[in-house]
Amino acid sequence: MTVRRPGWTSEALVTLDGLLDGPVHPPYSIDATIELALDPGLPVRALRRLIAVVGATGIADVVQVVRWAAEHDIDVVVLGTGASHGHGVRTGDRPAVALSLSRVDHVVADPDSGTVRAGVGAAWAAVHRVAADAVGRPCAALSRPGTMASTLGATTLRGATVVTGDGVVHGLPEQGCAAELWWAFRARPGAVGIVTAVVVDARYTTTVLPRTRTSPAELIRLVHLARRYDPAGLLGVPH
């Protein structure tokens, strides 16, 4: 159990605020309440442990939060990724910060490949406009309500950017030993890191893959893989 001296929270949050471009809100402020409203499924047990709500503006902020949390033995609870794809919330009494990804919404098209890279906080309407400019008239399904977080696990997914629990940025799919991260991401989005952006094929629909029961052997492999990339357990990986 980590022994914390009085006043450590304020000092730690001042340090975090100096590392980020995005805001750091006290947990019971109006601004924090607005951020938390984007993820109404957050358990009460996690709310009670929050010491701050952070609004990341990009991947650099996400990396800084993960590294800062590891240094101070603090959990990271990810908001804005959808109830079915978000990170599990650890049990216990360790302090936690909520990381909002609603500002991670940059959208860029690649006309040569017919793809669009978008932050998970980007609105479908914005992606639809960019895709239309890049490849002509895309499927109307891209204009449905919601954000890019809802595409995780889609059949037209071509890639993703993931920050693992060790603070390393991975552009999936990768070659070599990190290639298994792509497999793990497709099997269970968010299981091995914080997804900040996805690459989708702008020409087709994003029909969600059928939900099939994961075999016990696959679950064990996912757990071992998640532990490898989240050694401090910051993202809720069971140990």
Rank of each mutant, 00 (worst) to 15 (best):
T2Y: 03
V3I: 14
V3R: 12
R4C: 06
R4H: 03
R4P: 02
R5Q: 14
V14A: 14
T15E: 15
G18Q: 13
L19F: 03
L20P: 04
L20T: 11
D21K: 10
P23L: 09
V24Y: 05
P27W: 05
Y28P: 00
Y28C: 01
S29A: 13
I30N: 07
D31C: 05
A32P: 06
T33I: 04
T33G: 13
E35I: 10
L36I: 09
L36D: 03
D39V: 02
P40M: 08
G41F: 08
G41S: 15
R48V: 10
L50T: 10
A52M: 09
V53G: 02
A56E: 07
T57N: 10
A60P: 03
A60W: 01
A60R: 14
D61L: 11
Q64K: 15
V65S: 01
R67I: 13
R67V: 05
W68S: 06
W68F: 10
A70M: 13
E71K: 12
H72S: 04
I74C: 11
V76F: 01
V77L: 06
V78G: 01
L79R: 06
T81A: 04
G82A: 08
A83Y: 10
S84N: 09
V89D: 10
V89C: 05
T91G: 02
G92W: 09
R94N: 05
P95I: 11
L101V: 11
R103V: 02
V108Y: 04
A109Y: 08
D112T: 15
T115Q: 09
A123K: 05
W124D: 00
A125W: 06
A126F: 02
A126T: 15
R129Q: 12
R129C: 01
A131G: 07
A132S: 15
G136P: 08
G136F: 12
R137L: 12
C139P: 01
C139I: 12
A140C: 06
L142D: 01
L142I: 07
R144S: 07
G146S: 10
M148T: 14
A149C: 01
S150M: 13
S150I: 13
T151E: 02
T151I: 13
G153S: 05
T155N: 08
R158I: 08
A160I: 12
T161P: 00
V162D: 00
V163Q: 07
V163T: 09
T164H: 03
G165F: 05
D166N: 07
V169K: 13
V169L: 15
H170C: 11
P173S: 02
E174S: 11
Q175A: 11
E180K: 14
E180H: 10
R186D: 00
R188V: 12
A191L: 12
I194A: 02
T196K: 04
T196L: 07
A197H: 15
A197V: 07
A197G: 04
V199E: 14
V199R: 15
V200C: 03
D201H: 10
A202V: 14
A202P: 09
Y204K: 04
T205V: 12
T206R: 09
T207V: 14
P210S: 01
T212P: 00
T212R: 15
T212G: 00
S215M: 09
S215T: 15
A217P: 00
E218G: 01
E218P: 00
R221M: 06
L222Q: 08
V223N: 07
L225R: 11
A226D: 02
R227C: 09
Y229E: 01
Y229I: 03
D230E: 04
P231F: 08
P231E: 03
A232K: 12
G233E: 11
G233Y: 06
P238W: 00
H239S: 03
